[in-house]
């Protein structure tokens, strides 16, 4: 399903967060949304998930305007993976994944719903943990449960809001490989807000670079990741090299720590 974003605007009160964003993610592509803190990545993801309502512009799925869908139909089209999922009450991993079926069943889950749940659990390798409480899981396991929920939601589009930020390297890579696999095997269109430029370059088909709520670059990793633009956006000199068939981005300073302070 092709995701078309046209001139989307969003403001918190008077503060403009997205100032007319337009791009397209073709069906089955894995698109990374990059940009420094406050660039509007998360906001755009939430607007796509209908957590927030855009104050202007439009979003279309294969040409169908998102605003013409009711909330439930929308939830059958787009799944959302939040940064983290703290629940105040205990529930098992299986029940947590079943939440993804909320837009699909009426009063009680049917056999097909359970089937999707089990499939998602297998896909995310959560089989041994199904009867554990979510609170007992490690950070990586909990993040996988959240992705399993989105998988069980069985949507053609999936959006992820910095799902890798709290994970160690191994789980970061696993998460990205998994989403990539969803795009390859199930034809899901995926959009991920992410901080790590190199991971994005390595696993994603398309990169959209946001700065101050506007698009700075949009294209393949090679096209989108240009040293000039990145240096400008992140405010420090950056070099971009080709390495092992992928783009690698590095800060071009000897003492990068100085800039972090």
């Amino acid at each position: 399903m092709t995701l078309t974003i046209s001139d989307v605007r969003f403001s918190y009160g008077k503060r403009e967060v997205l100032g007319g964003v337009s791009f397209e993610v073709p069906a089955g592509r894995f698109c990374a949304l990059l940009g420094p803190n406050g660039s509007g990545k998360s906001t755009l993801v939430k607007v796509l998930a209908q957590v927030h309502r855009a104050s202007g512009g439009s979003i279309a799925f294969d040409g169908t305007d998102a605003s013409s869908l009711d909330r439930r139909s929308h939830a059958r089209t787009v799944a959302y993976v939040p940064q983290s999922g703290e629940a105040p009450f205990d529930l098992t991993v299986r029940e947590a994944v079943l939440l993804g079926r909320t837009p699909h069943f009426g009063l009680a889950p049917r056999a097909i719903d359970w089937n999707h749940v089990e499939e998602a659990i297998d896909l995310l390798n959560l089989g041994d943990l199904v009867d554990r409480n979510v609170s007992e899981l490690s950070g990586g396991q909990a993040q996988r449960a959240l992705i399993a929920r989105a998988v069980a939601q069985d949507t053609p589009v999936i959006v992820l809001d910095e799902p890798t930020s709290a994970l160690d390297l191994r789980y970061q890579i696993e998460t990205l490989r998994l989403v990539r696999r969803l795009t390859r095997e199930k034809g899901v269109t995926a959009l991920i807000a992410i901080h790590d430029l190199n991971h994005a370059a390595r696993y994603c088909d398309q990169i959209v670079l946001l700065h101050g709520g506007r698009i700075v670059a949009d294209g393949t990793p090679e096209e989108a990741l240009q040293a000039d633009a990145l240096s400008d956006v992140y405010g420090l000199p950056i070099t971009v090299e080709q390495r092992d068939g992928s783009v690698e981005v590095r800060p071009a300073v000897d003492d990068a720590i100085e800039y972090r302070i």
């Binding site: 998930a49 209908q50 929308h74 939830a75 787009v78 959302y80 939040p82 837009p103 939601q153």
Partner: peptide
């Protein structure tokens, strides 16, 4: 209760 307001909205609630 379990997913929070934002995720619940994305789940069609």
């Amino acid at each position: 209760a379990f997913a929070g307001d934002d995720a619940a909205r994305s789940l069609g609630v």
